[in-house]
Design a protein around this nucleic acid. Structure first.
Lengths: 212, 212
DNA sequence: TGATTTCACTTAACGCTGTTAAGTGAAAAA
DNA sequence: TTTTTCACTTAACAGCGTTAAGTGAAATCA
């Protein structure tokens, strides 16, 4: 009765083959320029076969992006493990890791974090609950809360502060990805400036606190 | 010999009619969901007529967005006129105006500032030189330079600081537009936090200065 | 006035796209 | 050996942006 097992294995293999082919094309050309037919051609199956494994194109893309975003989670988890009890340090390193991740996988970043709304209007967009995106954001929340407790960041609304940080790193990342023609200052300089400015802006520096 | 004049006028009218129809559909449905055929249907002409007035779909969209972005320029120009010699105040108000503009015209903002790269890969994307986008950015540069001169912002690379500010306001704007499902804190609170954090992060803190 | 030219606009078509319904044929089960 | 299962394919639909060729009324010229 090993037949079913073998068939399941074969199905899983093909599924992964589709995922890999799509991921490669997608990373190279960008979402808009990868058609279902081109993915099918690459794996040497008919286009409709893909629909036996994925509901539609956005479903396929979602799975690819979740897979890739897993790497970001791994990276920040590592940071957290290495610098336990240094939440502000974790925060800064995490911010840097996030931006570098975006620049390393610009197409994945684009689809999951830059574009998601209007192109998929009406469709239920990829659920936030349980997504890698959520885990990444929760990482920020955790470090912010920790930094406040240790008196390194000014106490306040943890959610608001976390979202402010997200806005900053998403801002610089998406700008660098989407506006490659713009005459940006040196990338490292800009990234550094954004991170430092944000943290300084949220920091409690005792002298100013006294003044207010 | 008023024939040519009348014909020119008629052409200009139709051109504007196309622009208006496209702008309305576009603001309502978003770029991806507005086809040339639907625009044509709205104005009761054949789809190909549009190509007699605009090179292609991106050209048409560009003109619409430039038109809309003109309003942002007007707004910040007004701010500048009212608060001359208060560059930091201009900067803050300008940041707020930028974000509010984005939220008011999310589809225009999306096309010109969120998506522009990958969908138009290969094509010469709308030129930055002379665009409303450039004028808006130059406004920031001007206020930053002024604020540094007046000793309100820490002296440094004007371009880097301006781009940092852009990253912050673009970050929060695009996040609010593209992730409407995300449980953001109150919009006004978040916008305020981003603006304050950024400015505080770039400010020269007088007490520390005095202390030294 | 009648013939000619101009030109704004349309028709038809190309080659794409995502997606679905119906059909096929080999392997597994009976 | 017959029947059933089911992974996969073929064919098609309805849409897309865009282009080449064609049409017909208005303006110009004779």
């Amino acid at each position: 009765m090993g037949v079913k097992e073998r068939r399941d294995r074969e199905k899983e293999n093909l599924r992964q083959e589709i995922l890999d082919a799509a991921s490669e094309l997608f990373a190279k050309k960008g979402y808009a320029h990868v058609s279902m037919r081109k993915i099918a051609e690459k794996i040497e199956y008919s286009p409709t076969t893909i629909y036996l494994y994925f509901k539609d194109k956005t479903d396929l893309l979602n799975e690819i992006c979740e897979e890739t975003f897993g790497k970001l989670i791994e990276t920040v988890s590592l940071i957290e493990a290495e610098s336990k009890d240094e939440p502000l340090e974790c925060l800064e390193k995490g911010m840097r890791a996030y931006i570098e991740f975006g620049l390393k996988y610009p197409n994945h970043y684009e689809v999951t974090l830059i574009t998601p709304i209007m192109d998929f209007l009406g469709k239920e967009l990829h659920p936030y609950e349980g997504s890698s995106g959520q885990k990444a954001f929760e990482y920020i929340v955790r470090q912010v809360a920790g930094s406040m407790e240790k008196g390194q960041l000014a106490k306040g609304d943890v959610a608001a502060v976390s979202q402010t940080i997200w806005a900053a790193i998403h801002g610089v990342t998406s700008l660098l990805i989407s506006h490659q023609d713009f005459p940006f200052v040196d990338q490292k300089v800009l990234i550094d400036k954004v991170i430092r400015t944000t943290i300084k802006g949220l920091r409690v520096d005792s002298l100013i606190e006294i003044e207010n």
